[in-house]
């Protein structure tokens, strides 16, 4: 598995430089929606990796190496998890620095928005990645774009999280726990479906 992740890291290396610059820029823009875009971008990275794999027919070679098909599938999810986690940390870190410069502490709303955006992106990942495994990158990308458009509308509404929290009985803890549960369930199901789809590719 370490080999697969390292391969994906090398594959993304050039893109990662651009990606890190984008995250930093998006994080310093004083709008939580822009930070959200960075996290969405992180959740998209498996598409880029799978596109490179498809072009070189890497999968055909990899199934002949000491890897299981499940590991080949799981590595794509792991690369997204790592990217989303790193993006969240960078975004929060930058906002802490900006806050310190302005003499303001990181608010609960800021933290909650980053974490909930990450959850939304991981659920998005769980929905689109099985399609990418099933339909290939080109058609899978269309599915992703449709989902993105839908998710974007949802993300816009996150701006009103504070207002929602003020009037609703839902506590931040409930939101976090509910979100985490949704992420875990959706991703467990997605990995299982992706495994099944991937097995069929090599029948």
């Amino acid at each position: 598995m370490k080999g697969l992740l390292l391969k994906d890291f090398y594959t993304l290396l050039k893109q990662l430089k651009f990606y890190l610059i984008i995250i930093v820029i998006l994080s310093v823009i004083p709008s939580m929606n822009m930070t959200s875009m960075g996290i969405v971008y992180a959740a998209m990275l498996p598409i880029a990796v799978i596109a490179f794999d498809e072009r070189s027919k890497w999968d055909h070679l990899a199934v002949m190496m000491p890897y299981t098909r499940n590991e080949l599938v799981l590595s794509k999810y792991l690369i997204a998890y790592i990217a989303v986690a790193v993006t969240c940390l960078i975004s929060l870190g930058i906002q802490v620095i900006i806050g310190a410069v302005n003499g303001q502490a990181l608010t609960m709303e800021q933290m909650l928005t980053v974490v909930l955006t990450a959850f939304a992106c991981l659920i998005l990942l769980a929905i689109y990645l099985p399609f990418v495994f099933w339909l290939g990158v080109e058609r899978g990308r269309i599915v992703f774009l449709v989902l993105m458009a839908t998710a974007f509308i949802g993300l816009m509404s996150l701006e009103s999280i504070k207002a929602m929290m003020d009037y609703s009985t839902i506590t931040p803890a409930t939101l976090l726990l509910g979100g985490a549960a949704a992420v875990i369930v959706s991703n467990v199901v997605a990995v299982a479906i992706s495994n099944r789809v991937y097995q069929r590719k090599f029948l």
Partner: peptide, 16 residues
């Protein structure tokens, strides 16, 4: 599979 070296026609390492 640890004991098998494989070379395939037109299936390579990622090009980057």
């Amino acid at each position: 599979k640890e004991d098998i070296g494989v070379v395939l026609d037109e299936a390579y390492f990622p090009e980057v």
